[in-house]
């Protein structure tokens, strides 16, 4: 434990400082702080899920620019499947299934057909926009609200319980579990070691007997389910409607979060919450009117912060070695 703290000194200091500041703010400004935290986490949930999609893809050596499109189609499929079938479960499954299919599409085109990964992702996004805007129908309603539940006894913790564990949605819990799960799987299992090997140095992994193409195919396809969850959360949980282009850049924000989180799941979780907080501050400024900034400009704050933070972070973090490059067996 002591050695671990010594090794991760910066992380520990920053985390403790953030937690102390969060609690201080919570007790000093009790009128606005709780709602800001809740809205921050609500904004962060799809970002966490989507950033994990990016992490899994890039750790295996495949850039996923198509997260935005995967989320959009999943939001669309989930919402309309639920509206037409009258069952929320059918909607959730349809959304996750469509995420899986689009994950498979990206995996197949980039790994099997060796299509340029950036082009494949952008094509996926444009296709998603085309499908969802043509088949969109106004005036549909969900059969009901997604269930919310308390996770006892965690929900009794001040602040943390209130924000993360009481009145929480399935996807919020999933986002936390998935971040922890992917972290554990990447760094402490055989699958994780192989995935990282395939993403860093595929020819070495190939020599060691790992089927590079198959592992990449499986990882990118299955990661699509997480993008599906993120999309379903947007159209069925965070709001109860589907609008054209409703993902609104979150897929790309998630990629930025992945980079700022140095391709590590738990840091991505922390960065996503940081982004959620920036968004909450932006909407607080809008509502409070305490500072005279036009609301149209505060809405762009997360995007401005992304560019600034990326410009600072770039060069300090290192992408997996083989990201963006197709692998051809026996071709050195």
């Amino acid at each position: 434990m002591g050695a671990w703290i010594a090794k991760n000194r910066t992380t520990v200091i920053v985390s403790v400082a953030v937690i102390v500041a969060a609690y201080a703010f919570y007790y000093l400004k009790n009128d606005i702080a709780p709602s800001m935290y809740v809205s921050a986490w609500g904004y962060a949930i799809p970002l966490v899920l989507a950033a994990l999609v990016g992490v899994i893809g890039e750790r295996s050596g495949v850039v996923n620019i198509g997260i935005e499109g995967q989320m959009l189609v999943a939001a669309f499929a989930g919402f309309f499947a639920a509206a037409y079938s009258g069952s929320l479960l059918v909607g959730v499954l349809a959304g996750i299934g469509s995420g899986l299919i689009l994950g498979g599409f990206l995996a197949w085109t980039t790994v099997k057909w060796r299509m340029d990964q950036i082009i494949a992702g952008v094509v996926l996004n444009i296709i998603a926009t085309g499908i969802t805007s043509f088949y969109y129908q106004p005036g549909q309603l969900l059969p009901g609200l997604m269930p919310k539940f308390d996770i006892w006894p965690l929900s009794k913790i001040p602040l943390i319980g209130e924000v993360f564990f009481s009145g929480t949605s399935i996807f919020a819990t999933l986002a936390i579990l998935a971040a922890i799960g992917v972290h554990f799987a990447l760094f402490h299992t055989r699958w994780g070691l192989r995935t990282r090997a395939v993403g860093e140095y595929p020819s070495a992994a190939d020599t060691a007997g790992i089927n590079v193409e198959r592992l990449r195919l499986i990882n990118v396809t299955l990661a699509g389910t997480l993008a599906g969850c993120a999309g379903v959360y947007l159209s069925m949980d965070a709001s109860s409607s589907f609008e054209r282009g409703m993902v609104a850049g979150r897929g790309f924000l998630a990629l930025a979060i992945m980079i700022m989180g140095a391709w590590r799941p738990l840091r991505a979780l922390a960065m996503a919450i940081f982004f959620g907080f920036i968004n909450a501050v932006a909407s607080q400024l809008q509502a409070g009117g305490s500072i005279d900034i036009p609301p149209q400009l505060t809405g762009t704050l997360p995007f401005v912060v992304t560019i600034v933070v990326l410009a600072i972070a770039a060069g300090r973090v290192r992408a997996p070695g083989a990201v963006g490059q197709p692998y051809v067996k026996g071709d050195q």
Partner: peptide, 15 residues
Amino acid sequence: RGVHEVITTIMLNYI
């Protein structure tokens, strides 16, 4: 800075 142009250009779209 080596920041990927696909991300910055999309962010700039929203800005």
